[in-house]
């Protein structure tokens, strides 16, 4: 099972600092929305896919992670084709597709603690005005990154258990135990955070 979305490795993307990657990702997003030519965007999507592949992630895992979002992007593109034009649809498809792949590449090569440190640093100025507690926000983000894969794995387990008992796998029948188990865990995890003094300042 996988915990945390980063995969171990020593590729150029792994070695780049979290801050640099986040800044580049932001700039790439801005650039992608400024460009309108579908062929230029297609080239960007191919480069993004190449970067994602360069992280050394296994092909099946790489696909599993982005398929849901890419499918949504495809639906948006189809809607654009129906209501606007083919050129517009292709532009949307490649633009959002490239962005998803770039974000996946950054996620796959950045450890949770690096993300958390970066978020804490980013929010420090706001902390001075009393808006947020930077450490809390970064802890929240870290927790999401840490436990989302675990919740997905549990979803798989529950589905399997349903099948093993010969029950039909209905979304609701899987979701209810999933939510209950997740809330129970959340309770323990919240307690553990207190017990270990993560929030003490």
């Amino acid at each position: 099972m996988l915990t945390g979305l980063d995969i171990a490795g020593d590729t150029p993307l792994h070695r780049a600092s979290a801050r640099l990657k986040l800044i580049l990702l932001f700039l790439a997003a801005v650039a992608l929305f400024l460009v309108e030519n579908p062929w230029a965007l297609a080239a960007a999507a191919i480069i993004a896919a190449g970067l994602y592949a360069s992280t050394g992630i296994a092909r099946s895992e790489a696909f599993r992670r982005v398929r849901f979002v890419l499918f949504t992007v495809l639906l948006v593109a189809v809607a654009n084709y129906v209501f606007h034009s083919l050129a517009e649809a292709l532009a949307v498809l490649f633009r959002l597709g490239a962005l998803v792949l770039l974000a996946a590449a950054v996620t796959a090569t950045t450890t949770i603690s690096a993300f958390m440190d970066e978020i804490t640093r980013l929010l420090r100025p706001l902390e001075r005005f009393g808006f947020v507690r930077a450490a809390d926000v970064s802890l929240a983000v870290g927790l999401v990154l840490r436990f989302v894969p675990e919740i997905l794995a549990r979803y798989g387990d529950i589905r399997e258990a349903h099948r093993a008992r010969g029950l039909r796998v209905r979304p609701l029948g899987v979701l209810v135990p999933l939510i209950i188990l997740t809330l129970k865990d959340a309770d323990t995890i919240a307690m553990a955070i207190d017990a270990r003094g993560f929030r003490r300042q």
């Binding site: 450890t111 870290g142 323990t188 995890i189 553990a192 270990r196």
Partner: peptide
């Protein structure tokens, strides 16, 4: 397992 918040031990 529930009290380990970050995925890598030393972290």
């Amino acid at each position: 397992q529930h009290q380990m918040i970050l995925p890598v031990l030393s972290e």
